[in-house]
Design a protein around this nucleic acid. Structure first.
Length: 766
DNA sequence: GAGCACTGC
């Protein structure tokens, strides 16, 4: 090891300029350090108790001591010896990759990265430790917490990096919490991820798309970079699969015959026990059963808050209403329990509404009793939000889940039975503070024999177009073998087909120049294509706005009990030829009325979503600038909207539907699926040809965010896709045929019109 | 006539 790598020597050198007489006193106060990756738990404990912070040489604040006392309560603190033994350099070759399992609440996300810092000493050698998270809110909140615990400023030594917010200081930051998507993007620019000495993948069991890709990437990278340490952190299930996947060649050699595996470190949980109850029979009406169970808990059980899992907004609001109504008839058996307070929890709530779940329930001063809080939530409470003081969980065993059918390219969005792992996760919400109870509204046999083991990983259930583009950019040739779990072949085929049609791939499946440009945009490939071609139509200012608006969740909100007002407000901004154009209009009006703080609210628009769209738009604008794409707008109001529609055709020609006769139904081009316009659609008539942003299956198949387009545009901008010989016989093909004939008639001088007439005659005969 | 949860320079 080079001398300069020894932090202790580094301190000695730094002292040189000081007065000799001061030196002894200072030397005592210096934290004692060690060469990187040669530390043991005893040394770390000593360093933690030291007056000086080893990471910035400043004296610790009183706050540090307080937090440290709390950290010592965590189970991982007692397991430090074991941890460093496994992670130390003495067994480095075997342990380049470590799998680490721990329950939620074991402190693994906050403590393990800190322990790795004490070992790696990244600050002494210009390296970084990354801890990935699937969600940005979690990344930012943990980073804040860890900065406090390490007694350093957030954004300096400890930081985070999420979309639109880079809270790190290059050269100073040595620990960063980063979303898995961001780290994946970084890998596209630097495949060796050279900045990092250790990469920790947290929540690996969630199997987000980016985590899956990163796992395959890191396994490969481990062979090329022997100095890189990798820690895979997950909940305590399915760990053997991680261990097997990450077995290094040494482990494979050592384990001849046996199953090779990467070492596993288990954090002992500190979970309280949960008593689980099952329904005797299947519940025909789970909502009613859930309401009755909550009321039963309120009546029979001692003090403690309740968490009920339901599927969507409507259901949650209904349950809140019913429970509030019927709870007044309940006389709780325990004197310490008073009324119930229902709190709905779903993501479209405003931040102040969301924060209500953390409010303590009101107490009545006159009596020594408190109201019982009943949180009624979607799946958001299962993974993204930890609610404290929950003692009772009511689990109907279902959740909304999106699956993707690549054959007809539809996203199904349906209430589905949860997995065993999910049921376990829900039950454990009852045991954060003290022993709890979980009421499962299904039979034990259903759980054992009907429920899947795990919720399927995202890579099985989503459109892979963006992922394929990213993998090709990363230089991965074999898309099937590369992954942690191979993606469904049909899904891959459809992704490749789309990318080829858009011109992102050549015939050999290599990335084209256009494709290479597309990877850089944080958008679906169809949207990027529309954006990149938009200067041709003099409208990239407009397409930029449309794309930004499509990137945020719904900008329109529906105030409960005022559906009429919401509808009228939307109608005032609606452009009748298309929802894309309505979005453009809404955004432009928002910008025009920015002075008026009430404008968004008066038009039933979410100010938060609009601000986010503005932010995304600015980001995309900078990206366009980087590729030297000029920003242009057409001043001619007659062609203004048509140009936008034409540009959209260039990206979305595979997402077009044709009206069936005079019915309300549309049929998707080539996939031939019968679909309806989504009720949110603002088209005033039923145009013959429409382009859509999404095809979703909920109560029935819908196309959502729809715009009227002319078939001539489709033929002109996507001639290969709209080649008639690639269509099956049917109304759509006939309609296209008519357009082709009409066009020929217009452009051809004499013969064309003759053909037209002849064709018309033929049709009349049929 | 209607909406799980996330994310991206």
């Amino acid at each position: 090891m080079p001398l300069s790598d020894n932090p202790y020597l580094a301190h000695m050198k730094a002292k040189k300029g000081g007065k000799a007489s001061n030196a002894p006193a200072q030397a005592i106060r210096k934290p004692i350090l060690w060469p990187p990756r040669r530390v043991n738990a005893k040394q770390v404990r000593k360093a933690m108790e030291h007056d000086l912070n080893p990471f910035n040489d400043k004296p610790h604040t009183p706050q540090y001591k307080k937090l440290l006392a709390r950290r010592k309560q965590l189970p991982i603190y007692a397991q430090m010896d074991e941890f460093y033994k496994m992670a130390s350099i003495t067994r480095f070759t075997e342990n380049q990759i470590l799998v680490l399992e721990g329950e939620t609440g074991s402190g693994k996300s906050t403590q393990i990265p800190q322990l790795v810092c004490y070992s790696d000493l990244p600050h002494t050698r210009g390296k970084l430790i990354a801890c990935t998270q699937p969600r940005s809110v979690v990344a930012t909140t943990i980073a804040k917490r860890v900065a406090d615990e390490m007694d350093v400023q957030l954004g300096e030594h400890v930081g985070y990096s999420v979309q639109f917010e880079d809270m790190t200081s290059p050269g100073t930051t040595f620990l960063t919490y980063i979303t898995d998507e961001m780290l994946l993007r970084e890998a596209m620019g630097d495949p060796r991820l050279t900045r990092y000495s250790t990469i920790i993948l947290d929540e690996a069991h969630e199997r987000s798309l980016a985590t899956d890709i990163l796992m395959a990437l890191l396994k490969d990278l481990a062979r090329k970079r022997s100095d890189l340490k990798i820690v895979i952190m997950c909940a305590p299930f399915d760990t053997v699969k991680f261990q097997t996947f990450f077995a290094t060649s040494e482990e494979i050699d050592m384990n001849e015959g046996g199953l090779p595996h990467a070492p596993l470190f288990k954090i002992r949980g500190r979970m309280h026990p949960v008593e689980v109850f099952y329904s005797q029979d299947s519940e025909p009406d789970y909502l009613e059963a859930a309401i009755q169970t909550v009321l039963m808990i309120h009546q029979e059980e001692s003090e403690g808050d309740v968490l009920l899992f339901l599927t969507d907004e409507d259901e949650i609001e209904r349950a809140c209403h019913e429970i509030n109504l019927r709870a007044s008839d309940v006389m709780p058996s325990y004197a310490s329990v008073d009324r119930v307070t229902c709190i709905p929890l779903y993501p479209s709530l405003t931040p102040p509404q969301l924060l209500k779940i953390f409010d303590p329930v009101p107490t009545r001063r006159s009596r020594d009793s408190r109201s019982r809080k009943v949180v009624i939530s979607t799946n958001i409470a299962e993974t993204s939000l930890a609610i404290y003081n929950i003692v009772y969980v009511v689990d109907p065993g279902i959740s909304m889940r999106t699956t993707y059918n690549p054959r007809i390219r539809v996203h199904a969005h349906l209430a589905t039975p949860i997995s065993k792992a999910s049921a376990q996760q829900r039950a454990s919400c009852a045991a954060r503070n003290r022993p709890g109870k979980c009421f499962r509204l299904y039979r034990e046999d259903d759980l054992n024999f009907e429920f899947e083991e795990h919720t399927p990983p995202k890579i099985f259930e989503c459109n892979l177009a963006t992922t394929v583009l990213q993998l090709l950019k990363l230089g991965v040739k074999d898309l099937v073998q590369f992954n942690y779990d191979p993606p469904p072949p049909e899904s891959l085929m459809r992704a490749l087909e789309l990318l080829k049609n858009l011109g992102a791939l050549d015939d050999d499946g290599n990335l084209t120049r256009l494709g290479a440009m597309m990877v850089e945009f944080p958008l679906d490939p169809q949207l990027t294509k529309a954006l990149i071609v938009s200067p041709k139509f003099n409208c990239n200012n407009e397409v930029l706005t449309v794309v930004a608006m499509l990137s945020v969740s719904d900008v329109w909100f529906r105030p409960p009990r005022k559906p009429k007002e919401a509808k009228e407000a939307k109608a005032r901004l609606t452009i009748p030829n298309g929802d894309h154009l309505t979005m453009l209009n809404a955004y432009n009006m928002y910008i025009q009325n920015k002075e008026d703080k009430n404008w968004a609210w008066q038009h039933c628009l979410s100010a938060r979503a609009l601000a986010q769209a503005e932010n995304i738009r600015a980001h995309l604008e900078r990206l366009m600038d980087r590729f030297e794409i000029e920003l242009v707008s057409s001043q001619d109001m007659r062609t203004f909207y048509d140009n936008v529609r034409k540009a959209l055709c260039c990206g979305f020609f595979m997402q077009v539907a044709h009206r069936e006769g005079n019915s309300n139904n549309y049929v998707t081009v080539k996939d031939n699926q019968v679909v309806g316009l989504h009720p949110s659609c603002g088209l005033n008539n039923q145009p013959e040809w429409v382009l859509f942003n999404e095809f979703i299956l909920t109560t029935r198949p819908y196309i959502r965010t729809v715009t009227d387009v002319r078939p001539e545009w489709l033929l002109e901008y996507a001639p290969a896709y709209f080649d008639l010989s690639t269509f099956t016989d049917g109304e759509t093909k006939q309609a296209l045929q008519r357009v082709i004939i009409k066009r020929a008639g217009k452009s051809g001088v004499q013969t064309g019109s003759k053909v037209g007439r002849r064709e018309k005659k033929k049709r009349r005969k049929n």
